[in-house]
Amino acid sequence: MTWDTDFAISILPRLLQGLWITIQATMAGIAIALALGLIVAVIRYMRVPVLSQVLGFYVLFVRGTPLLVQAYAAFFILPTFGIVLGPLLTGIIVLGVNYSAYTAEVYRSGIEDVAKGQWEAATALSLPARPTWTRIVLPQAVRSIVPMLGNYWIQMFKDSAILSAITVSELLYVGQTIGADQYRYLEPLTIVGVLFLAVSYPAAVLIRRLERRLAISR
């Protein structure tokens, strides 16, 4: 079997549609992960009794089980409780929740890196808790962890291929479907690989650059 350029061109539009779904899932997933991770990190840092321990277990549990197991569990178990969300929405929630456990740890490292004197100064000025977090701690914490969050974003982009297993019509799913229909896997899967590479490699280079810039200016 040799490479068939005409066939490759003919399937490109469908694959690009798949890539668009992949990008949408990643955007929505990272938004959930960034917000939920921050909430988890702040609550754990404030040592709210019971809630902090529960969230500690949440982080442990999510990080200790494979993403695909979580995706299957959500996709097959939730409907038995009458919750039917559809593949894409289920996939986005699973990605977001899974990565929130990782971003929570990143936020935590950022928060712990903020100098102790900043907290003490805020207390000395009797600043209420909310502005202490939003004006003093978080702006300093987030700056240093932006590259790390960026790396998780790229990783999520690659992990979104797993959602093909729960029939989300993202890039890999489209490639597989074409391959199974036409009995030709060479062209669709090669293009799938190239498209993933074409997005994630430049993104990784950009983040490496961002990392260097933030490191120097500190």
Binding site: K158, I162, G175, G179, Y185, V192, G193, F196, S200, Y201
Partner: peptide
């Protein structure tokens, strides 16, 4: 830069 699952399918098929 590419997902492991894509590599699995590429290698296998």
């Amino acid at each position: 830069s590419t997902p492991l699952l894509v590599q699995v399918f590429m290698f296998y098929y």
